[in-house]
Design a protein around this nucleic acid. Sequence first.
DNA 1: TGTACATCAGTGAACGCGCGTTCACTGATGTAC
DNA 2: TGTACATCAGTGAACGCGCGTTCACTGATGTAC
Lengths: 193, 193
Amino acid sequence: MRYPAQHKQHTRERIVRAASRRFRSRGSEGAAISDLMKDLRLTHGGFYRHFESKEDLFNEAFEHGFQQIADRLIAAAEKSPKGGELKAVIEAYLSLDHCEDAADGCPVSALTQEIARHSPRTRSVFQRSIRELLVRVSRYVPGATEDERLRKTGVLLSGMSGALSVARALPDDRMRRRLLEGAREFYVKAMMT
Amino acid sequence: MRYPAQHKQHTRERIVRAASRRFRSRGSEGAAISDLMKDLRLTHGGFYRHFESKEDLFNEAFEHGFQQIADRLIAAAEKSPKGGELKAVIEAYLSLDHCEDAADGCPVSALTQEIARHSPRTRSVFQRSIRELLVRVSRYVPGATEDERLRKTGVLLSGMSGALSVARALPDDRMRRRLLEGAREFYVKAMMT
DNA sequence: TGTACATCAGTGAACGCGCGTTCACTGATGTAC
DNA sequence: TGTACATCAGTGAACGCGCGTTCACTGATGTAC
């Protein structure tokens, strides 16, 4: 059957959103295309009307995740009291909420390790995405020059993503909370100076 | 044919070592048992004389990787001048060598994200392994109490693993070096106080 | 000491399953006339 | 305005492949006698 003009684009966006969640919570190999399509009450055959390959979807999906986490960190900063923006960013990133919700969380802490093993194409999409994230977040990070702020933001975000990844792998709730708490304190203190 | 008494154990250890390297460089899904066994000039059928399942091997393999990285960091500390131990640990972890050699590198920066998606059994092996690593490395980290030193070590190692994972995913060599360098400077400075 | 049998690490074919991808088909709506 | 045809998002069976796991078999050496 023939669909209204914007129908196709709408479906495409729904696929990206659903995929982005699934990839972040299960990894790219843990999320099958037929399951993705089932999420949207579609069948797997139609997938290839929208994307050339699973890898193409993967790339778009984590790009979308990068925008989502940037929006979220910026929202946290903007609603915090003047001067507390960076602290708010750190506490949002290293929150228990973020730890427990990988599906809507930062792609860096969910997918970096497998992206390192993906194709050059995927890795360059990753590089572009993370650079944009850094640019957007760096305005809350102190530093004499733009360059210095970007550098510090890179260290901060990669460091926090490591803490979050480890926390998610720990089965013991207490140990997980202690790591997150320790990391929050550490980065807030170390980044303020 | 029947083999000498210690033959079986020897083969088992060879499998663990080969698997440990392969898993760290390709992930657990990227390393097939038949390839692992081929590395040792054996066939895949014999694998199950040594391990109950691939998951069991995976667990032993990353445990082995944890010991390896601990040995390496301690060796770096021990051969550094008095008072420079922590700096040596940080610079060894965040070295370009370590970045380029995931196969013999730290399992945290190679496998944590997928371990978070593995079974509780695997995650508890991970927890035990990382705790041992922290205990061994914490003696070079300043802090008033053992507890404080462990905490700081956890933040440090998880943070460095994040920087290393991101660096490995970046396709651009310059950006990778800058991140590693920035992280080295940051952690050396922040951890000394 | 010699003989018959047991052992068991390793072999390689086979099984079963999941999954990415392809493809002939459907059928409601748009377009040409 | 009405009719014939084209379009194309979505369907679902089928294909091909990789891979974890199983299993009957091999054959050199150890053990029982």
